[in-house]
């Protein structure tokens, strides 16, 4: 048995060594190699930029806010910082990073998903996870400590973050980064497919918690940042009465049922590029985004 334990301990030691080496390798490539593969890298590789409008949120910003349309024939500069899969805790971190890196904007628009207000919210960074290579950054570390249930593993266990969030920051992303496959200039992505199912719907849950929203509001007040909260459209939303009431109480501009036709959706919670144009026009009109 002693021999067996020696064998196992020796293997575990090799495993830990390999994990440390891989962690160093991945982290140094992500943090040192120039080129922008995602919006978080854009923030880390830039600073002191001026914009008129910056839009933050999930895929329902990334695919819905046509910033080129806002800036067309105008002198405005707007930035789509929506990240697919990102939830409100991650959006909050991105907001903090933008502010600390001196990204100035007349208005920050924060899109809120209904799921951001779940009563029982898992504290996780599974959504975007592009922050993970930067856990040594103080802003990221402090934010994770407060909002990430896996904080210890994510920040202390070597290579854990690249295994746990492999789908977003694993070998695939690393190889693309090494191969200089940079992201296209525009941060807005218009989706082409059209929702085929007329009977699709989005069912609201009817119970909400606004703690995190209040924390974001307090932060914005301290930093003297103008925030506008809004929700993107859903296809055929059901049981929306309580959410609308909640939105009104919390100063959230809600557009959940502002677009109704099926041909403007890609699926029940995403607009296609035609729907995105209509929705962006609505925001331009309602918030007077054009000079």
């Amino acid at each position: 048995m002693k021999r067996f334990f020696k064998y196992i301990i020796w293997r575990i030691a090799v495993l830990i060594l390999v994990l440390i080496l891989l962690d160093i390798l991945f982290t140094s490539i992500y943090s040192k190699k120039k080129g922008i593969r995602n919006k978080i890298e854009y923030v880390f590789q830039n600073s002191k930029k001026n914009y008129d409008y910056i839009f933050l949120g999930s895929s329902r910003v990334e695919y819905h806010i046509d910033t080129e349309l806002i800036d067309a024939d105008n002198n405005t500069r707007s930035l789509n910082m929506g990240v697919s899969g990102q939830d409100l805790t991650e959006t909050f971190l991105l907001l903090k990073l933008l502010i600390y890196k001196s990204f100035k904007a007349k208005k920050y628009f924060i899109q809120l998903d209904e799921s951001d207000f779940s009563l029982v919210k898992e504290k996780s960074f599974i959504g975007a996870s592009y922050f993970m290579p930067y856990v040594d950054n103080n802003e990221v570390k402090n934010h994770l400590e407060k909002y990430d249930d896996d904080f210890i593993l994510d920040t202390k266990a070597p290579f854990y973050r690249y295994m746990n969030y492999g789908y977003k920051i694993g070998y695939r992303e690393l190889l693309l980064k090494l191969n200089n496959k940079n992201r296209r200039v525009s941060f807005y992505i218009g989706l082409k497919p059209v929702l085929k199912d007329n009977n699709a719907s989005y069912l609201f849950k009817e119970k909400y918690n606004n703690d995190l929203l209040n924390e974001i509001k307090s932060f914005a007040k301290e930093e003297n940042v103008a925030l506008v909260f809004f929700t993107s459209p859903y296809y055929n939303p059901q049981k929306t009465v309580k959410f609308k009431k909640f939105a009104k109480q919390n100063n959230i501009n809600q557009y959940i049922d502002s677009i109704k036709k099926v041909e403007y959706f890609k699926d029940s919670d995403h607009l296609n590029y035609l729907g995105a144009r209509i929705f962006t026009e609505m925001l331009i009109r309602d918030f007077n985004l054009k000079y």
């Binding site: 390999v18 891989l22 295994m163 746990n164 492999g166 789908y167 070998y171």
Partner: peptide, 16 residues
Amino acid sequence: EAVILILLLIFGQFTN
């Protein structure tokens, strides 16, 4: 063993 271990750590789908 070392090769397979490294492949496992890099290419393994641990959450997905």
